[in-house]
Amino acid sequence: MAILEATDLVKVYTGGVRAVDGINFSVEEGEVFGFLGPNGAGKTTTIRIGVTLLALTSGTFVIDGIDVQRRPEEVRRRIGYAAQSVGIDDDLTGRENLILQGRLHGMSNREAGAKADELLGVIDLEDAAGRRAGTFSWGMRKRLDLAQALVHHPRVLFLDEPTTGLDPQNRRALWTYLRRLNQSGVTIFLTTQYLEEADVLCGRLAIIDHGRIKIEGSPGDLKAGLGGDMVTVTLPREAGAGPLEHTRAVLAGVDGCTSVSVHENSVSVVLRDGGAHLADLVRALDAAAVPVARLELAEPTLDDVFLKHTGERLRVDEVRPPSRISGHRMRART
């Protein structure tokens, strides 16, 4: 049985904004499931409904067999939640914050203290444990907040953009914690706008945009679902709309080319058996005298999946879309 199950979930805010517009998904115990989407896609709204902080408009959200609307208190015992903007009392020390969480979940002082010490070790904050949390860096705050969500041994962990605002080093460290956590049996539901994060962490993910799930699957399946390799033809910046349209038409006619899309001054196509058909594609471009500034052949990324299903690229200014190589290296290290 699924541990998380959302059915026809709708949230309309006062004022009429449909932040979540009929979402369905289910997550099995032990999975890492992610929502990948831009700001405003409905990720945080969905999470806040799941953690009982927000009432839904219609539909159901069931966690471990319990309806979040009907028996929120029982849901609260089973879940941990780390908000995007964290929840930390700056006047208390790191350790005191953790103890407070334990106490809020019904632990005795001693139990909470022991758990706090254990978690401080896990997130490498032992040295700073006695310092006021107000002095912590953002990376430390994110880690502390994650630990706070774990104090009461939740079965499901809800993480809203767990690594937003972190530098790459801190981000990778956090991924390591999360993976370890998942291996210990905790189901994780996370949201992210980072392609690499979705790729590296999620066993399965849903691409969400404008309050709806566009497609869902494992990162590998989603990329394979594009049906080939990505070829991107970039024209000179000054080329303009005419040549761009011309290029699009030429590429559409090449054998093995599917789903042609135009983005700024480049045209992307999915090319079946990329290597084998690339020569045909180049010959076609040459014959049509397309002014090519750059030609790329690459394995598809989640951004290509995103582009295909939403018509947009998922641009996050902070972080460049990952290359496959760095992704593999990271996996080896962690």
Binding site: L53, I79, A83, S85, G87, I88, D89, D90, Q101, H105
Partner: peptide, 13 residues
């Protein structure tokens, strides 16, 4: 603002 109210609200209190 600090997210503490949310922390209280998601605890089984």
């Amino acid at each position: 603002d600090a997210g503490m109210l949310d922390k209280f609200l998601i605890a089984p209190l």
